[in-house]
Design a protein around this nucleic acid. Structure first.
Length: 320
DNA sequence: AAGGTCTGCAACCGCTCAAGC
DNA sequence: GGCTTGAGCGGTTGCAGACCT
């Protein structure tokens, strides 16, 4: 037994909105407001589903919407909030004035996920891939560990190749005895023969990381102690395979990206994050009883809490 | 220049939840 | 308490333009 459709499927136009339709909807809402979306298309003279009208209005036509590129600050905010609340786009969008959940979701899926992957960070857990590998490795018996690098390569192949073929990489320069760090700005472009070598280097690096987890330094990717954006949270391989210092945005300028993105349970502000997770989990319990409170973004953060280095005072919609 | 592939965004779909009856 | 309806959410799809070969 499914729900009845929100509108007649016949006689309802779908697809891109025309400027004429936009005008009709905007002028109708300007006069009558947004009460009863089911009646709006009929009264506004539109052959559209009410739901479609609502989406068009909320995602595009609303006068308070901001169109165009996301700023560095906005991107930071998205990443930080995503690492706490996950794919709760409406909650994240509530902190970004003029941005919709759809905007945030699209930006995450098209840009930010790739940026994080390119930095060697798993966009789901917000931990470095190498860190995840080491965590998994410590839970496996030795015979299983032997196969982990191969499996990991399968899982993260795309991210690794993206990282190694499009972003700067030091290991080739190191093989040529050029000290790391002097290679800033050098990019290695993907060519098949280079990729083959890259894959082998990935395997080797992962294997070593897994077999010698103690080689992995305590993960403090963007701690204030080395906020110059040159921290290296990846395994120090003895094979010559080494990740370049990771920065993006304004390369190496100590931009907000390189300074303050804090990910995973081992971040320097992990305690605060843990508190936030606890608060979130408590509220998750309440969600089953309390309905949409969380979805509406009203109760996750305490007013005094700091979202890592993002003070709650900076949140556009402080969540009490 | 042409065809293929990739990317980013707008729109749609199906689901859940709350309110009203 | 159960059903219907409206609204909101996150995931997915489709398409146009950009880019690549």
């Amino acid at each position: 037994m499914g729900r009845i459709p929100c509108c007649e499927k016949e006689n309802v136009k779908r697809g891109q909105w025309t400027p004429e339709e936009d005008n009709k909807l905007s002028s109708y809402i300007a006069q009558h407001g947004t009460r009863n979306w089911r009646l709006i298309p009929k009264n506004a003279g539109l052959q559209r589903c009410g739901k479609s009208c609502r989406l068009r209005w909320t995602n595009y036509l609303r006068p308070d919407l901001k169109h165009g590129q996301f700023s560095d600050i906005e991107e930071q905010t998205i990443v930080k909030l995503h690492s706490v609340v996950g794919n709760r786009w409406s909650l994240i969008a509530a902190q970004l004035p003029g941005r919709t959940d759809n905007d945030v979701k699209n930006h995450w899926n098209t840009k930010l996920k790739k940026k994080l992957s390119g930095m060697g960070i798993d966009p789901v857990t917000h931990k470095p891939f190498s860190h995840l590998m080491a965590e998994i490795a410590t839970t496996l018996a030795p015979p299983q560990v032997a196969h982990l690098a191969e499996a990991a390569l399968g899982c993260f192949k795309d991210e690794m190749l993206h990282l190694l073929t499009k972003k700067r990489v030091d290991f080739q320069l190191q093989q040529a005895n050029i000290p790391p760090g002097t290679s800033t700005g050098t990019y290695i472009h993907g060519k098949e023969n280079e990729r083959d070598g890259t894959v082998e280097n990935i395997k080797l690096g992962l294997s070593r990381a897994i077999q010698q987890p103690d080689l992995i330094p305590p993960y403090k990717p963007w701690s204030s102690a080395d906020s110059a954006g040159t921290s290296n949270c990846f395994p120090q391989s003895t094979s010559g395979f080494q990740y370049a210092p990771l920065t993006f945005g304004n390369e190496g300028d100590g931009s907000s990206w390189s300074q303050s993105i804090c990910t995973g349970s081992t971040c320097t502000a992990g305690e605060q994050q843990g508190q936030l997770h606890e608060i979130l989990e408590e509220n998750e319990e309440g969600l089953s009883e309390g309905g949409k409170e969380i979805r509406n973004g009203t109760s996750i953060f305490s007013s005094d809490s700091v979202l890592w280095d993002l003070p709650c005072d900076d949140l556009m919609n402080p969540i009490v």
